[in-house]
């Protein structure tokens, strides 16, 4: 039983870290721009397609492929924000519809260019670490370590870097931030680029672990949504808490009752949070 408990905890931690990566970008974009980015799952998919092309097809080094793919996704995010979403900052319904249109377009483009079927790339890391009867695939350890490193870097960026502080200032009060000489327009682009980059990173990391298809972003997007509702829309610490909570809940209930029940439980938590603490576990009341 102890062995099973540890296995569930390890599984939950690895899921949780990926959910946090996804949710951080999603909540960052909402916190700063008030845009519910429904295309977030598609940025995850584009990151994975980048790995399919660079690592799977062209044979580049996996880690260099990750760097190149996520930078491209970040740049794509900046372009989408600047061209399609800038006009809707603060107008939640309009921006939501625009993001939905971007999501459907990216999905359809991927289906046309790469086909609707699932594809796989070789695994850059193979093997399993077995500790006290608990099995941890090495590729997931690598994913977990990279995700953790990026989370720490992201925290330090927001806490100490000039642009990180500027992002937090714009999130708190765009008008006051502008009075301090911060250009909100630039911060919007930066935030959307960084948010997309994080989603792309999650996709690039998971590409060799799972399969790659145009529709692969749907579930991570749904999970990111659950995480930010649990943690509080726009709250960075909330995304971390929500991601870990969802990871452990999913691992626990999937193991004992199956994935359908686990999804029901996750949405059940969302319902409870919306009923009794609509701002989320760590969110600020509006």
């Amino acid at each position: 039983m102890l062995q099973l408990t540890i296995q569930i905890a390890v599984n939950g931690l690895t899921f949780g870290l990926i959910y946090i990566l996804m949710a951080l970008g999603f909540t960052l974009i909402f916190g700063i721009m008030r845009v519910v980015n429904f295309a977030h799952g598609e940025f995850y998919m584009v990151g994975a397609i980048g790995i399919l092309l660079l690592f799977g097809t062209l044979g580049f080094n996996y880690y260099l492929s990750i760097v190149f793919a996520v930078l491209c996704v970040g740049l794509l995010g900046v372009i989408v924000e600047r061209v399609l979403l800038r006009g809707f900052v603060g107008r939640e319904l309009n921006s939501m519809i625009m993001a939905l249109a971007v999501a459907i377009t990216l999905q359809a483009l991927a289906a046309i260019l790469f086909g609707p079927q699932e594809q796989s790339v070789a695994r850059p890391v193979t093997g399993v670490l077995q500790v006290a009867g608990v099995f941890i695939p090495r590729d997931r350890i690598v994913v977990g370590v990279i995700a953790l490193a990026v989370l720490i870097a992201f925290y330090l960026f927001l806490r100490y870097a000039r642009y990180g502080l500027a992002m937090r200032a714009v999130a708190q009060d765009p008008a006051a931030a502008a009075l301090q000489g911060i250009r909100p327009g630039f911060i919007y682009s930066l935030a959307f680029g960084v948010g997309s980059l994080l989603a792309g990173l999650a996709g690039a990391l998971m590409a060799p672990v799972y399969t790659i298809s145009p529709f692969m972003g749907d579930v991570p997007m749904m999970m990111a949504f659950i995480v930010v509702i649990l943690g509080g829309l726009g709250s960075i610490p909330g995304a971390v808490v929500g991601g870990l909570l969802l990871g452990f809940v999913e691992s626990l209930f999937s193991t004992f009752f199956g994935s359908t029940i686990a999804t029901m439980i996750a949405f059940g938590m969302v319902v409870l949070i919306l009923l009794f603490k609509p701002s989320g576990l760590m969110g600020r009341a509006q």
Partner: peptide, 9 residues
């Protein structure tokens, strides 16, 4: 895509 809990069961 994540079948680890499933497989554990």
């Amino acid at each position: 895509r994540n079948f680890q809990p499933f497989v554990t069961r």
